[in-house]
Each structure stands twice: as C-alpha cells, then as structure tokens.
Simulated assay, not measured.
Amino acid sequence: MLRVEEAARELGIGRSLAYQLIRTGRLRSIKIGSRRLVPRSAIDEAIARLLEEER
C-alpha cells in the first residue's frame, strides 16, 4: 500500500492529479481511517488504463 503522494511519484504525476484520478475511478484506492491508500497493483492497472485511453 502506498500513500497517494508515493503513488503519484511512482506514476510521475503530481499529488492533485493523483487525487483527480482517484475521484474519477481511474486509480483504485481504499480509505483506512482518515488515510487514503493506493494498492501497488493499482499503479500497473492505472498505467494500462491510461495507455488504452491513448489509443
């Protein structure tokens, strides 16, 4: 599990864009207490989804 900031860094995007992707359902995340966390597997899924959208 990654914090949103860490997930954004791995994707090479900013924190606000990562939150936008989460809000739109393009980046999977879960909420535990007050923390929003991104599963590591969601990073690869988001990359694959973004590549598909480019076609």
Rank of each mutant, 00 (worst) to 15 (best):
residue 1 M to E: 15
residue 1 M to D: 13
residue 2 L to K: 12
residue 2 L to R: 14
residue 2 L to S: 06
residue 3 R to W: 04
residue 3 R to D: 01
residue 3 R to G: 02
residue 4 V to I: 09
residue 4 V to F: 01
residue 5 E to N: 14
residue 5 E to Y: 01
residue 5 E to T: 08
residue 7 A to E: 05
residue 7 A to D: 04
residue 7 A to F: 01
residue 8 A to L: 02
residue 8 A to P: 01
residue 8 A to N: 02
residue 8 A to S: 01
residue 9 R to H: 02
residue 9 R to F: 01
residue 11 L to S: 06
residue 11 L to N: 08
residue 11 L to V: 06
residue 12 G to Q: 15
residue 12 G to K: 14
residue 12 G to L: 14
residue 13 I to M: 13
residue 14 G to F: 04
residue 15 R to Q: 03
residue 15 R to V: 08
residue 15 R to E: 10
residue 15 R to F: 11
residue 16 S to W: 10
residue 17 L to P: 00
residue 17 L to V: 06
residue 18 A to G: 04
residue 18 A to R: 06
residue 18 A to Y: 03
residue 18 A to L: 01
residue 18 A to E: 06
residue 19 Y to K: 04
residue 19 Y to S: 01
residue 20 Q to T: 13
residue 20 Q to H: 13
residue 20 Q to G: 07
residue 21 L to F: 05
residue 21 L to Q: 00
residue 22 I to F: 11
residue 22 I to H: 07
residue 22 I to A: 05
residue 22 I to P: 06
residue 22 I to C: 04
residue 22 I to N: 02
residue 24 T to P: 00
residue 25 G to L: 03
residue 25 G to Q: 07
residue 25 G to D: 02
residue 26 R to M: 11
residue 26 R to A: 08
residue 26 R to T: 08
residue 27 L to R: 09
residue 28 R to H: 03
residue 29 S to L: 01
residue 29 S to T: 01
residue 30 I to K: 15
residue 30 I to A: 10
residue 30 I to Y: 14
residue 31 K to T: 14
residue 31 K to W: 07
residue 31 K to M: 09
residue 31 K to H: 08
residue 32 I to R: 15
residue 34 S to H: 08
residue 34 S to V: 10
residue 34 S to T: 12
residue 35 R to W: 02
residue 35 R to M: 11
residue 35 R to Q: 15
residue 36 R to F: 00
residue 36 R to T: 11
residue 37 L to I: 11
residue 38 V to K: 05
residue 40 R to V: 11
residue 40 R to E: 15
residue 41 S to P: 01
residue 42 A to N: 08
residue 42 A to H: 08
residue 42 A to D: 12
residue 43 I to K: 05
residue 43 I to S: 05
residue 43 I to V: 10
residue 44 D to H: 15
residue 44 D to M: 15
residue 45 E to R: 11
residue 47 I to L: 15
residue 47 I to H: 09
residue 48 A to E: 15
residue 49 R to A: 13
residue 50 L to H: 14
residue 51 L to Q: 13
residue 53 E to M: 15
residue 53 E to G: 09
residue 54 E to N: 12
residue 54 E to F: 07
residue 55 R to T: 06
